[in-house]
Amino acid sequence: MRRDRIATDSGRDVTVVSRNGAASARDAAAFSTRWSYARKRQLFLGALAAPALVYVLAVAVGPMVQGFLYSFDNYNLIRPGSRHFVGLDNYIALWRDPTARSAVINTFLFTFGAVTIEFVLGLGVALLMWRDDWFNRIALGLLLVPATVTPLVVGLVFKALLNPEYGMIGYALAESGLSGPRGLLAEPQRALATLVAIDAWEWTPLMALILLAGLKSLPIDILEAAAVDGATAPQRFRLVILPLLMPAAFLALILRMMDAFRVFDIIFVSTSGGPADATNTLMIYGVKQGLEFFNIGAASAVSTVIVVCILIMAAAFIAVLKPARNRHA
């Protein structure tokens, strides 16, 4: 903002120069102090930003780069002496390992399944609560409880509830024949879908909240105009609300996608990748490789793959965010 002002000021200086030499000298002096002020200000702001930047580079980016380098090594902590450069071998092994390939597929299935369900349900809940009154304010506060429960505990709770013998949900499902005798989490075909449902329980409220904020920021006059013009409720939703909500919706979607992609806690405690690798995701696979088998090279290759996928999503996020910001400005 300030830069713009300086730019226009100096632009005026230029026009003044051609008319009056004395005035231009004075303006140039003023301009140079202002320039040095701007420079001082930039230095001050830089000093404020530096600690966080240095810290994050050292503690988050540094290890990440280190991990990227490990991914080209044969490096196992059980035999640390035998560490040597192997080029792309870890990536090739990853590509050839059917367990890793199924982990990639599971991760994408989980991410898209969870985010789609959370979006549809979240939009439904947001539309239900789109009215600022005491009832909805209290409801919103309570609705966010699942998002604050330790994800680890969420996994444990649903593991217990889905137990076919003593769990309330599991028992009912097994008795009515909707699940096998060993429960949903023990069935290879349904375990992943069950985890998607658990994730949806935990994060739909958050999606609803973000979409609700989007709904509340819609221009009221346009909505009223549509109603006055006789548009029915479904028409208003499809032709007015949904298109206007798109930027907020897209941001919520990508944010949730980046989080769902690295899901770990609920899977780790409820199935830890089983049964028969049916719920094995990239994060589970990577943590097992690294912190159970101490195969640092392989684990680093897995995390590099995850980081690349997340960076692609982040790029999409920023691509959407930028024009959205400009439009508001």
């Binding site: 990440m64 991990g67 980046m258 994060m283 943590v287 912190l291 982040a314």
Partner: peptide
């Protein structure tokens, strides 16, 4: 944006080298 992306990095990417 850089700081936002750092938040979304999977824990395993930093955890092993940091360990």
């Amino acid at each position: 944006y850089f700081f936002l992306i750092i938040r979304t990095v999977p824990p395993i990417a930093t955890l092993i080298p940091f360990y």
